[in-house]
Simulated scan of single mutants.
Amino acid sequence: SVRWGDDAEGIPALTPNPGSRHLMSGHRGWQWYLFANVEGYYMAQNLTLDGNTFRDSHSVDREEWVAEASAGLAMAWEDWQVTYAAVQRTREFDGQDEQDKFGAITLTRRF
């Protein structure tokens, strides 16, 4: 992971909250940062691809190892922050036409 910008001290995670305001240390004026992240993980069980755990059901042959890359921008003013992240994930199952690509926009406010 890498982050560059005002008061840089962490990378937002896309789950559960990609734009956590606690990653900004200041409280006044404009702040911003850019971020990029690459990660890989082993998927032991994916209910949406493997089907029911306790009996036979529809399923697909899936990839056990999945990689993901994300990059984005966060901008904050006073107690408000907006974060945009673009994500690309490797194929998760056999026969998947292309890799998953999506974006996430999050608006947060500090209380």
Rank of each mutant, 00 (worst) to 15 (best):
A44S: 13
R62V: 07
L49M: 01
L34R: 06
N37D: 05
M43T: 04
D100C: 09
D56E: 13
V38R: 02
L47I: 01
A85Q: 12
G26E: 15
E92D: 11
D79C: 07
Q81P: 00
Q96N: 02
Q96Y: 00
Y41P: 03
L14C: 03
S20W: 11
A85D: 07
S1E: 08
R91T: 11
R28N: 05
G26S: 13
E9N: 15
W80K: 10
N37S: 11
P18S: 09
R55I: 00
W65V: 09
F102Y: 15
G40C: 03
Y84C: 05
D97K: 14
A13H: 11
W32P: 05
E98S: 15
H58T: 11
I105S: 12
S25L: 09
N17Q: 10
E39C: 02
A44G: 13
S59K: 02
N37A: 06
D100R: 14
G51E: 05
E39S: 03
R89Q: 12
S20P: 13
N46V: 02
Y42F: 09
E64P: 14
L47Q: 10
F35N: 07
V60E: 04
E78C: 08
Q31D: 06
D94M: 14
D61R: 07
D6E: 11
P12R: 12
F102P: 06
A8N: 09
D94A: 11
Y84I: 00
I11W: 04
F111N: 10
R109E: 00
Y84M: 03
Y84E: 00
V66A: 03
I105A: 14
Y42N: 11
R89M: 08
D61F: 05
H27P: 05
A86I: 13
W77H: 14
R28K: 09
H27Y: 10
R110L: 15
L47V: 04
T106I: 06
E64C: 11
Y42I: 00
N17D: 15
W77Y: 12
E9C: 15
L23H: 02
L47P: 06
A76R: 07
S1W: 08
T108I: 05
E9Y: 15
Q45L: 06
R55C: 09
S70H: 02
A71P: 03
S1C: 12
T83V: 13
V87I: 13
F111C: 02
Y41S: 13
P16G: 10
P16T: 11
T15N: 13
R110K: 14
S1D: 11
W32K: 12
Y33W: 09
Y84G: 00
A85P: 04
G5Q: 01
L73V: 07
G40V: 00
N52A: 09
V2G: 12
R28M: 01
S1P: 09
Q88S: 12
M43I: 01
F102I: 03
D100M: 10
R21F: 13
A69L: 05
F93N: 12
E92C: 13
Q88R: 14
S1L: 10
G95V: 10
L47T: 03
M43A: 07
A71L: 04
A8P: 13
R91E: 06
S57R: 05
L23G: 00
I11D: 08
A85R: 07
T90Q: 04
V38C: 01
V38Q: 06
W32R: 13
Q88A: 10
A44W: 08
T106N: 12
G10Y: 07
E64N: 15
S57M: 01
